[in-house]
Simulated assay, not measured.
Amino acid sequence: MEAIALVGELITLSIMAFALGMDAFSVGLGMGMLPLRLKQIAKIGVVIGLFHMLMPLGGMLIGHFISEYFGAIATLVGGTLLLLLGFQMIVSSFDKNEEPFVTPVGFGMLVFAVSVSLDSFSVGLSLGIYGARMLLTICLFGFFSMILTWAGLLMGRKFQHWLGSYSELLGGSILLGFGIKLLI
């Protein structure tokens, strides 16, 4: 009976991890429009995976006390960050002499990682109340988000080659649209 419950929890958590990882995929698709090396893409995926482990871990530890209040704030902050990143990419696409203000390198990578993993904090709060297995949860969240981030970045990189000078505009539009989706 315990094995059946574990398999059920594994399937449920895997579906949730995939759904949360799709956020990272979508944003990775937009950020992949920037000229990135494969080494940068690998590093970004690992960082996003780590943040998708740390954020739900923090949420699970905090649990029941502030779940409703903080969940809404996390979504607002994440959506706002994506709006700002998308808007900046769109603006910089019209000015070819200037480097993007925020790129997924250094501080920009931190902003990028936080923006795509804030929603996993909210989910962690809910799972903390539910009593999900913490280690299993954070490992699945990290794994799926890392793989899906890599997939999004690599697809975005491919589209960037096809779209040429319009790729940054498209990437910014994707981030902007995803930020609006989070806020609405």
Rank of each mutant, 00 (worst) to 15 (best):
L84C: 05
T103E: 15
M155Q: 11
I180G: 08
G86R: 07
L34T: 01
M33Y: 03
Q88N: 11
A74W: 04
G71C: 01
E99L: 14
G142H: 13
G30K: 07
D23V: 12
G58V: 02
H64S: 11
G63H: 02
S93T: 07
G32T: 10
P100W: 13
G79N: 04
A72W: 01
G59C: 01
L182N: 06
E99C: 04
F18P: 04
D119V: 09
L10H: 00
M22L: 14
Y69W: 07
I66S: 05
G71N: 01
L38Y: 10
T80I: 08
R157A: 09
L118N: 08
A74E: 05
L135W: 14
G59E: 01
L148D: 13
V111W: 10
S117D: 12
V77G: 02
H64G: 02
W162K: 12
M109F: 13
V116Y: 12
G131E: 07
G21Y: 11
Y69Q: 09
A42R: 13
G171Q: 05
L125K: 04
S165T: 15
I48E: 04
M1A: 14
I184E: 02
I11W: 03
M31A: 12
L36Q: 03
S115D: 11
G58M: 04
I180Q: 06
A151V: 15
G78S: 04
G8H: 00
